[in-house]
Amino acid sequence: MKKQLLLFAFSALALTSLSSCEDDDVQGYDLDTLKGEWKNVKTEIVSGKDNKTVLDLYTYSGCELKNTTLFRTDYSTTYTYYSGVGADCQISQNGQGKYTYDAETKDMVITYDDNVQLKFKVIVLSSSELKLMQVPSSGDFNGDTINDLTYTTFKR
């Protein structure tokens, strides 16, 4: 009986350690995928009713195509936004801050140095695409009394 109890206790400990390592592996993998520079591609407002109908689409163009967000594995982030006409692109905004990310829930919170805090749900994270949904939603854009969803897509 003691041997069975000892075996059970050891098995439970081993499974707990294994799942903890797997969680760490997922977090590490996601952070490794997230790190680096991302360029803004588009922002979509999607119906909160069906999460499919695109109510508004903004595709970045001109100098805005230079807009970048950089994520590092030490949980720091910076952004640089550009404006201008033609080839005359100038930095219009930049900032830095820290972020948190939970690989299990896909929740991300960015807090910039000016204390602006933005909350997101990571919808897509691959080596070439990052898609974030703003949380909470931005409001009701189509007047159906259901808050609509804002998605921002980045590419490498």
Rank of each mutant, 00 (worst) to 15 (best):
K39L: 09
K66F: 05
S47K: 05
G28A: 07
T152R: 02
L57H: 00
K98W: 03
T105Q: 00
D50H: 03
G36N: 06
E44H: 03
L7W: 08
N142W: 01
I146A: 03
G143N: 15
K49F: 08
L65S: 10
N94G: 03
D32W: 03
D88V: 09
D24Q: 11
Q134R: 15
Y60R: 02
D107S: 15
D114E: 09
T69R: 12
D144Q: 07
E44F: 04
T73D: 14
T69S: 11
S138W: 02
A87T: 13
V41H: 15
D107W: 05
S76Q: 09
M108Y: 03
D56F: 14
E37Q: 10
V116K: 15
S138Y: 02
W38P: 07
D140A: 06
E129V: 14
S47I: 00
F120C: 05
Q4D: 14
T77W: 04
K3D: 12
D113E: 11
L18R: 08
T145M: 09
D148K: 03
E37V: 10
F8Y: 08
C89E: 04
L31K: 01
Y75Q: 13
I123C: 04
K2H: 10
N51H: 10
S128T: 13
S138E: 10
N51V: 04
Y82D: 01
D30Y: 02
F154E: 02
D113M: 07
S17A: 13
K52Q: 10
V116T: 14
E37I: 11
G143C: 10
T68I: 12
N40T: 10
L55G: 05
R72N: 15
G86A: 01
T73S: 14
S17T: 07
L118F: 12
F120V: 13
I123D: 15
G143S: 10
G139T: 01
T16Y: 12
V135R: 14
K49L: 11
T78L: 00
D113K: 14
D102Y: 08
E44V: 10
L6M: 11
G48S: 04
S92F: 00
S83P: 00
Q27W: 05
T68Y: 05
T105W: 06
E129D: 10
T77L: 13
F8C: 10
C63Q: 07
L65C: 07
T68S: 12
T80Q: 06
Y112W: 12
Y81N: 14
G62Y: 06
D144F: 00
T59A: 11
L55T: 09
M133F: 08
D140F: 02
Y82P: 04
I146G: 00
A87G: 07
Y79T: 07
N115S: 15
N94M: 13
T78I: 09
Y60E: 05
T73F: 01
T73W: 01
L65M: 12
M108Q: 15
M133C: 08
L149Q: 15
F141I: 03
K39F: 13
T73C: 07
V109A: 11
D113S: 15
D50S: 03
Q27G: 02
I45Q: 08
L149S: 15
Y29E: 08
Q27D: 06
L149C: 13
T153R: 08
L5I: 11
K3L: 13
V54C: 09
E129I: 10
Y29H: 09
Y60N: 04
M108W: 00
G97Y: 06
F10D: 00
Q134L: 12
S128I: 11
K2C: 02
S11L: 11
S137Q: 12
